[in-house]
Simulated assay, not measured.
Amino acid sequence: MATDEASARIDSWIWAVRLIKTRSAAGAACRAGHVKLNGAAAKPAQHVKPGDDVRVRIEGRERIVKVLRPIAKRVGAPVAETCYEDHSPPPPPRAERPAGVAVRERGAGRPTKRDRRDLEKLKDGYRPYF
């Protein structure tokens, strides 16, 4: 593809317009098949140009955007919003999102007596152990 100023690599573009947090995550998403350019799976080095449709699947949600302006450098959020037209469905309401699950660090071992007491306080309210 052409490397003129009217196009940009898709991995750097989805990072630059803040659809994905890091450039390496953008490349990984492309390689994993989570990014589609005009309906076909996109490789990280493919170029986007104005008018292209980009679909990015992140965190269980699909973002559908139309490229208005290709950029390669990361910009602020207000400027980034001018580079694409968002056609994504609205995110699900907060009530429908799954609640986070408490996870202990791997290798932390069994909970201590203090940890168990703290858990009991959270579940049943305070009960003294005298």
Rank of each mutant, 00 (worst) to 15 (best):
A2K: 14
A6N: 14
A6R: 13
S7F: 02
S7W: 01
A8H: 01
D11V: 12
W13L: 01
W13P: 01
I14F: 05
I14C: 03
W15S: 02
L19Y: 03
R23M: 05
S24W: 02
A25V: 06
A26Y: 10
A28I: 06
A28D: 15
A32I: 00
G33A: 08
H34F: 09
H34D: 15
H34K: 15
G39I: 02
A40C: 05
A41H: 03
K43M: 09
P44V: 02
A45P: 01
A45W: 03
H47V: 10
H47A: 14
V48I: 14
K49A: 15
G51H: 08
G51T: 07
D52A: 08
V54M: 03
V54T: 03
R55P: 01
V56K: 01
V56N: 02
E59M: 10
E59K: 15
I64A: 10
I64C: 11
V65D: 03
K66P: 01
V67N: 12
R69K: 11
I71K: 05
A72M: 04
R74Q: 14
R74H: 08
V75M: 01
A77R: 08
V79F: 00
E81F: 00
T82A: 10
H87I: 02
H87Q: 14
S88F: 03
S88T: 09
P89L: 13
P90D: 07
P92F: 10
P93H: 10
P93D: 15
R94H: 13
A95T: 14
E96C: 04
E96H: 10
P98W: 05
A99P: 02
A99Q: 10
V103D: 04
V103P: 01
G107F: 07
G109V: 04
P111Q: 12
T112N: 05
R114F: 05
R114T: 14
D115W: 06
R117T: 03
L119F: 11
K121L: 14
L122K: 07
L122F: 05
K123P: 03
D124N: 12
Y126D: 11
P128N: 09
Y129N: 12
Y129A: 12
Y129D: 11
Y129V: 08
Y129W: 07
F130T: 05
